[in-house]
Amino acid sequence: MDKNISFTLKIWRQRGPKVPGAFKEYPMKDIPGDTSFLEMMDILNEELINKGEEPVVFDHDCREGICGMCSLYINGYPHGPATAATTCQLYMRRFKDGDVITVEPWRSAAFPIIRDLMVDRGAFDKIIQAGGFISVNTGAPQDANGILISKKVADRAMDAASCIGCGACVAACKNGSAMLFVSSKIAQLNILPQGKVEAGRRVKAMIAKMDELGFGNCTNTRACEAECPKSETIDNIAFLNRDFIVAKLKD
């Protein structure tokens, strides 16, 4: 059975995007090891509410690691110390009695803080709106088996498509670059025959939007792939670079 642990939470509290924030410490007592990190945050909030204080605001929704909403930077890691897992899939048994657990929001100029640990990741949506799609209307496309796609290509596209758009790559990157996110979408769509038709147009539009929104330049530090909860790799970034260079040279 998991043991109960006690520890100190050091949480970033900030009222709004323009108000300066600061860390605040909260002692936590006897938390069972099979509590998820977010449930532990629920316990803290319950205590704060009972004391008449405002709860810590953080984004979360599905709590099963797929919606990409949770976004805590815990002890120096986006989504905490577990690998290939989101914050909601992190369990307290990973921590030790007496630990100080520092919780910060994603920090990047393109992700302004809304409150406390909640940030605005609308920039990701804008990048997808610029070109992260295949231009096909609802209607009657050809039979699904009319396009044969090798298992290798389908699997490769699926791996790239696993991205959940949480922004951990940006949070981990010392350059605030969104390349892993953008390249995952590019790799998924540009590798598939359906998406190849507009591959060049897509990659140019998405990169232009990404740059416009103030994300940084990738310097291949690989911090993004180390922290990605869905294990996306910088293969995707190489793929994007290649397609982008080819598209620009064709112009």
Binding site: K10, G21, F23, Y73, N75, G76, Y77, T102, E104, R107, S108, A109, A110, K174, N175, G176, S177, G214, F215, G216, N217, T219, T221, R222, A223, E225, A226, E227
Partner: peptide, 22 residues
């Protein structure tokens, strides 16, 4: 300079370098 700007003015209090990052 661009990347520092993209990173934002507020820095993390705790940072760790993952083992795969040189």
């Amino acid at each position: 300079l661009l990347n520092r700007k993209a990173r934002g003015s507020e820095r993390y209090a705790v940072t760790v370098r993952p083992t795969t990052v040189e």
